[in-house]
Every structure is written in structure tokens, then in C-alpha cells.
Computed example of a mutant assay.
Amino acid sequence: MDTERAPVRVVIVDDDQLVRMALRLVIDGEPDLTVVAEAADGDAALTVVAEQRPDVVLMDVRMPGRDGLSATRELLIRPAPPRVLMLTTFDSDDLVLGALQAGALGFVLKDTPPARILDAVRTVADGNPVLSPAATARVIAAATSPWSSHARDASREAARKQLSTLTERELDTARAIADGLGNPEIAGRLHISVATVKAHIGNLFAKLAVDNRVQIALLVRDAED
């Protein structure tokens, strides 16, 4: 991480004060990240985001009054909106899909290890989508079920044809993405640099004609179903 850049400015939105305090401690402990404000509900979030112009909003889903999904939709129709990373204790299909449909770039469960939450904030700040492994699995399940046997066979063949264009290393990277790993974790698994991981992901986007990591994960799951 380039520490010469200005720190990523973060707003934390959660109705639980202890959660906000814990997140602030974790985030403010990093030289490249800083918490500029907190909010306890969606309405307050809209106000502080307008005042602080953060890069990333860590947004709880379920809160009294205006919830996180509604607040996210409102934020993202404003000029120069922040990136939104949904953070919640809930992992139902409706919430995951609702968050993504609202325009969130990421969805991470609150029991995610702090290091992964920090990695998710950085990834979203760079404009890249990120989902926790549990959320990725639920998106894939929701997007592929219920399917007929014929539809699954057709999807499997189409996915395998797309993946056949990849090099062995690119395929390994795609499988790691399907497992919900972030770039540093993929680098560790494959014993390569993060820069090389990013290069492989760029190749995946181009070769597979996809726009985000979830679409890569769906292709891998379809091919291996």
C-alpha cells in the first residue's frame, strides 16, 4: 500500500455504538485509512456523508428508521458518491442481493476477521467489488437455483468453454476468487505477488468478458457444478 497517498476517508454507519468503536479502533490503526465520521442510522449517514465527502462508507444493513439499503440507494444517486461496503451480522440471500442491487460494491459479515475487513475497505476504495466467502456462496446459490437439469448442463458447457481460454495460472486465480479470497490471500495461495494477481484478474476480465469478481465466481461454479 502506497502510504504517500492521502488516507482513505471512511464513514462508519451502525446503530450499535460498540461496533462503531471497534471498527474505528481497527481502521484508525492503519496509516492508509482514517475514520472521519460515524452515524447511527441511515438518515444520519446521509447528513455526515454530505458533510465529510468520504471515500468509503461502511454501512450496516438493518438499523432503526432508514435502513442501510435505503440509505445506500439514496447516496449512490448523488453526484460523486462514495463507495459503499455493507457490513452486517446477517447473511440471507435477500440481504446480499439487495445490497448489490442497491449499488454497494461489497458485502462483508461482521464476524469477518479484522484484517479481511481492512482489505475489503481498501479493495472497495479502489473501485473493485468484494464479497466475503459466505456472501459469495449465497449470491452464487441464489443466481443458479432452481435450475432444470438441461439448463445446468448448458450452463456448465458454456462456462467450461469460456474458462478453456485461460492459462493454468489464470484458472487458479479464478478458482481462488470463487473461494472468496482477496488479492493478498490469492497471492499467498499461489505464491505470487499481489501485482501478478492483479494482472491475472485483469486478464480474466478481458478474456471472460466480465465486469466483476462475482461473475468470475459464477463461471467457475457453473463449470464445476
Results as ranks from 00 to 15, higher is better:
T3F: 06
E4G: 09
E4L: 12
E4T: 15
V11I: 14
D14Y: 00
D14L: 11
L18E: 09
V19D: 04
V19R: 03
L23C: 13
L25Q: 15
E30R: 15
A37I: 06
G42K: 04
A45Y: 02
L58E: 01
M59Q: 05
D60F: 00
P64S: 03
R66T: 07
L69A: 04
R73K: 12
R73P: 08
E74K: 11
L76E: 08
I77Q: 15
P79T: 06
M86N: 06
T88A: 09
T89Q: 13
F90V: 10
S92H: 13
D93P: 06
D94N: 12
D94F: 11
L95I: 10
L95W: 09
L97A: 11
L97G: 01
G98N: 02
A99C: 08
G106Y: 09
F107P: 00
I117G: 00
L118V: 15
A120K: 02
R122M: 04
T123W: 00
T123F: 00
N128H: 09
P129V: 02
A137K: 09
A141V: 07
A141N: 13
W147T: 07
A151Y: 04
R152W: 04
A158V: 07
S164L: 10
L166T: 09
E168M: 12
E168K: 15
E168Y: 07
E170G: 08
L171I: 09
I177L: 15
D179I: 00
P184N: 13
E185F: 03
I186V: 15
R189C: 07
L190G: 02
I192Q: 02
V194W: 00
V194M: 10
A195W: 06
T196K: 13
G202W: 02
N203R: 15
A206Y: 14
N212G: 14
I216V: 15
A217G: 14
R221E: 08
D222E: 15
